[in-house]
Amino acid sequence: MLSPHHRILFTAIACVLLAMVTIQSGASIAKQLFPLVGPEGTTALRLGFSALVLCLVFRPWKALPQGQQWRSIIVYGLCLGGMNITFYYAIERIPLGIGVALEFTGPLAVALLSSKRKRDLLWVAFAIAGIVLLLPEIDAEKGLDPVGVALALVAGACWAGYILFGKKTGTQSSGGRTVALGMTVAACVLVPFGAVQQGTALLSWEVIPLGFLVAIMSSALPYTLEMVALRNMPAQGFSVMMSLEPAFAALAGFLILHELLSPLQWVAIALVIIASVGSSMQPPAKTHSQ
């Protein structure tokens, strides 16, 4: 029989795994919405519903930022919104697993640049090798769409900004209220953009339930699960497990979207995962904020 400590740790691990499953399943469902409302409309639905749910749960109006604190919140929200829409634009053009692996270069860069250890150059080499392996396949007609690859890397840069400004805003209020405010800022910018681009298609009863499902699976539910996990397991262990996310994305893309990856693409994903796990095993391990 498991001891109370082991039961708590097992629950935390299960929460992390379930969070990764829901995030990538949500991304797969989002990709199925693209033919109906495009990446812009899908982003608008995800951010709009997510902001609504998170504000109802965390009630950020009870402790609003003051003065200069709003600057960090606004930049944090813009990074969050930019990360969402550029990632959706990317996976419209390239497989989900590849998109997540390329996006992971953002938090990986933050982790490695904040470290002073020479051995971390090894993890930089693994990450670069993973990206280099994809270069021969970057061909709009025969392989990976170059625009999709570039957009995934831009999403990674936005993720890096999300981490850096998330840490800064996190010192000002609770994590839940920070995310709720950031999501609201992102929604205020991108919901009108999606509405202008897609119009009344966003109000379709075929679209609204799927949009709400994407919001719950991609934001509200996994964020809650990750908060539970972080309270019950070491931050380093959490970071190592989250490093497996590109593999979960590739698996979700295969099972839900029937996206087949070549052996070389699987090797590239594996190299990015190795780099992320390696960087997570070194202090500091605080740079993974999702």
Rank of each mutant, 00 (worst) to 15 (best):
H5W: 10
Q24P: 11
A27N: 15
I29M: 09
L33T: 07
F34N: 02
L36P: 00
G38M: 00
P39G: 03
T42C: 02
T43W: 00
L52R: 03
L54Y: 12
F58H: 14
K62F: 04
Y76K: 05
L80P: 04
N84K: 01
I85Y: 04
F87P: 01
Y89M: 13
I94H: 03
G99F: 01
V100T: 14
A109D: 05
K116L: 03
D120Q: 10
V124F: 10
I128T: 13
L133E: 09
L135A: 15
A140C: 01
P146Y: 06
A157Y: 01
I163F: 10
I163S: 09
K167D: 01
Q172R: 07
V191R: 07
V191G: 08
G194K: 08
A195V: 14
T200W: 05
L203M: 14
S204Q: 12
E206L: 09
I208W: 08
L210I: 12
A215N: 02
I216F: 13
M217N: 03
S218Q: 10
L221M: 14
P222C: 06
M227E: 12
Q236K: 15
S243E: 04
E245V: 05
P246L: 09
A250P: 11
L257C: 06
E259N: 11
S262F: 03
V267Y: 06
I274M: 14
A275W: 02
